[in-house]
Design a protein around this nucleic acid. Structure first.
Lengths: 142, 142
DNA sequence: CTCTGTGCAAAGGATTTGCACTACG
DNA sequence: CGTAGTGCAAATCCTTTGCACAGAG
């Protein structure tokens, strides 16, 4: 987790962005939340430690991280966007259509596909998201 | 494409929903658009053929289709949600962080993973989305 | 010292209620 | 016929600008 924070900070600096106090707070809150928050929830988390941080700084930092490919906004259920951490380069979800629950899993066999696609489209791949949709055990009404 | 329309219509009816005139228009517009539209764009498309259809009927139908796992909202760039058709059960994207362009591809080797995950979590899988993020040829400044 | 980043308030969209009306089955 | 579905307008919520100030390099 400390590693994740360091990696995010470093990525910002390497791309010519300043590592300000506000950004450090935001990154810490993001990592601490395991990377599953809406922008608004994140504002709340950040303000627990740093009450002075503005809502828009959070929005702008999220946009910045998205552009760098470090996080990704997804829809989870309805309403506001949720952000997931991609700093390991990949992320995997199991999304239940019934209860909108999100389960994460680690099995990843996308490497080969990744290589093929990359060559095929001359596309430089930084990360990926794999989501399965269906019904979880509970919602199937076992 | 006619098949897709029929499959969507059938899915609605099988789940106890009525196949109204408005819904038929919406489904047709969705299939005709190749399944890459925002809610607002879809309202426009539907109204070309059926001017009387209300914005909210479109929203509600989209929500309904999402619950049934037939479509999925995703972020493409910023602003409004875009909906993609999952009626084949799967969908694959290549998203460029630079220009927000979305390229679709067909290579799919997720079947095995799907089976493993399904058994592992006792989760009934209906479809999936696989997205790769990175930089396209143009944005790498070849 | 300069330029990037920040915070506030207010604007701008997108999405969602509430409720009377229509039409599918 | 009864109930699910529809349409309108207004409300609500999320996100984005514009601009003066503060802080990093």
């Amino acid at each position: 987790m400390v590693n994740k924070l360091a990696r995010l900070s470093q990525a910002l600096q390497e791309n010519g962005y300043r590592l300000t106090a506000a950004r450090q707070e935001i990154l810490a809150a993001l990592v601490g939340s395991e990377g599953h928050v809406s922008a608004d929830e994140l504002v709340g988390l950040v303000r627990q430690d740093a009450p002075g941080v503005g809502r828009m700084t959070v929005y702008r930092t999220l946009e910045l991280l998205s552009e760098l490919g470090l996080i990704r906004p997804v829809y989870q259920g309805t309403g506001a966007a949720h952000y997931i951490l991609l700093d390991d380069g990949h992320h995997h979800h199991l999304v239940c259509s019934g209860c909108d629950r999100v389960i994460e899993f680690d099995e990843c066999a996308v490497q080969e596909i990744s290589r093929v696609i990359s060559g095929h489209f001359n596309f430089e791949i930084h990360g990926h998201l794999l989501e399965f949709y269906g019904r979880c055990e509970a919602c199937r009404g076992v």
